[in-house]
Amino acid sequence: MTRPMTSSKPVVELQGISKEYKSGPKTILVLEHVDLAIKVGERLAVAGPSGSGKSTLLNLIGTLDAPTSGRVMFKGRDVAKLSPKDIARVRNRDIGFVFQQHHLLPQYTVLENVLIPTLIAEAAPRVVKRAEELLDRVGLADRVDHRPNEISGGERQRVAVVRALINRPSLLLADEPTGSLNQQAADELARLLIELNKEFEMAGRPHARGDCGGAAWAGRVRNGPDQPAVRRAARGEGSR
C-alpha cells in the first residue's frame, strides 16, 4: 500500500475568520474568529446544526465568499490580496467544489459539464479521455451524452463530483453533497468520495496542481453545537 502523501504545509488556512450578515436592522454573526488549517492529505468533516455556518465556512475556504474580518490563506497567499483573475485560477486549478444542488449546467451534456473546468486549464483530447475514464469510474459511461434533466439526482451528483475532480485539485470541498439524495444514493456517493480520494492519493502522481490531498465536506448534525465542529478524519476513515 502506498504511503499516503501528506505534508505539514497547509493547503488552506483560515486565520481569525469572522463572517457576519446584515438582515434588516440586525447583524448576524455567523462565524467568529475561526482558525482552521487543512493540510495535504487531510480529510475534514464540518458538522453542525442548520444555520450554524457550515456552508459559510466552506464558501470562505473555497473563496466563494469573503470574510468580514480575518484572512484566508491559500497555499501561503492571502486570498484577499489576489486579483479576480488569480482567484479564478485558484478555483479552477486548486479547488474542486461539490455543491448540495450539484449546479450542473442544464444545457450541456454530462461529458460537457465535466469538461467545463478544463476549458481554462488544459487542452483536449487528453482531458476528454480522462473525463471519460472518470465517468466510467463512477458508473456513468453510458450517460455521457445525456443532459442533467435526463439522469437521476444521484447520477447528477456523481457528475458533479467528477467535474470537481477533473483538474486534479489540491482541495476538494463538498457542501452537503448528499443533502438532496435519498439514503441509498447518499451512501453510494459517500463511498465514492472516499474511494476517489484514496485513488488520487494511491496514484501518487506528483502534480503541481493535482494532488488531491485534502478534502473537507460539511454535513448536518442534529443537536450539535451552535458553531460548526470540524472533525479531522484519519486517512482511510470515512465520515458523514
Binding site: 466563494l64 479564478a88 485560477r89 485558484v90 478555483r91 479552477n92 467544489f97 449546467l105 486549464a121
Partner: peptide, 16 residues
Amino acid sequence: APEIATLASLGFSPSR
C-alpha cells in the same frame, strides 16, 4: 445567476 455562479466557482474569471 446560478449558472454564472457555477462558472465562477469552476474558475472562470469575471472577464471571461
